[in-house]
């Protein structure tokens, strides 16, 4: 028998400030093998870590979106404790622009929901992971970049934090055209970066308004990208 839905499937602890985080994941063919396996395990660990935090578990809402040849909403925004743990498979092209388009729309929708309900909220996150060059058309990528820029610049603080994590043959210029928050992963081990992400979610969801949030140190295999510097260059 199928289980009926209850309110907690959508949103819980309406009265507490919420933080929406969309994970936008590249599942194109190049991710096959170790990369996709590590990603699957890391998502599981991410869920476990955030759900384990007594405050963050009530406040962090997560959506999973993948992009390969097409965009797929693996799960819409829901409390982190309710999110499914998918087994993602890699294959196909890299329609990044369509993925971004979908993720930004979903974040806007979620924000709208918070406002309609009267649920306080923090600035939402989109955390994109990619290992290659987008196969979307140039104009589609420009539109996606524009869409991020619009969402990030609205209001006094901006209404979105878009992060891009590149690994493998990712194109640095392409990611920098989307956001200034570009970080790179030296190998295909996603564990550390997801630990960092869960820690960041916990810290932000409990932060005091107006206070600068101190993120934890990036794991050893991740660093802030700098234009013109290649992965594995000066990496020790």
């Amino acid at each position: 028998m199928a289980k009926q839905f209850n309110m907690d499937d959508f949103i819980k602890s309406c009265g507490e400030p919420h933080l929406a985080c969309a994970l936008l994941l590249d599942v194109s063919g190049s991710m096959a093998g170790d990369a996709i396996n590590s990603l699957n395990n890391s998502i599981k660990q991410f869920k476990y870590n955030v759900s384990d935090d007594p405050v963050a578990r009530n406040r962090v809402d997560v959506a999973l979106i993948t992009f390969g040849s097409e965009v797929k909403v693996v799960s819409d925004f829901m409390p982190v404790t309710e999110m499914p743990v998918p087994v993602l498979r890699a294959g196909g092209r890299t329609d990044m622009a369509a993925g971004i388009d979908k993720a930004v729309d979903m974040v806007k929708e979620r924000t709208g929901l918070y406002h309609n309900l009267g649920t306080p909220c923090h600035k939402p996150w989109i955390f994109m992971i990619t290992d290659g060059l987008s196969t979307s058309s140039e104009s589609a990528m420009m539109q996606a970049a524009q869409k991020i820029k619009m969402a990030e610049s609205k209001g006094s603080n901006g209404h979105l934090s878009f992060w891009a994590l590149g690994t493998g043959d990712y194109d640095q210029d392409e990611l920098f055209s989307l956001t200034k928050r570009v970080i790179e992963l030296r190998n295909q081990d996603f564990r550390g970066v997801f630990d960092w992400l869960s820690e960041s979610m916990a810290v932000i969801s409990q932060s005091r308004p107006g206070e600068d949030v101190e993120f934890g140190t990036l794991p050893e295999n991740v660093r802030k990208a700098e234009r013109g510097r290649r992965i594995d260059e000066d990496w020790y």
Binding site: P17, G112, Y114, C121, K123, K154, G155, S156, S207
Partner: peptide, 11 residues
């Protein structure tokens, strides 16, 4: 209409 649902944010 929904696009107008923009918000004041903590951070």
């Amino acid at each position: 209409l929904h696009d107008e649902a923009d918000m004041l944010i903590y951070k």
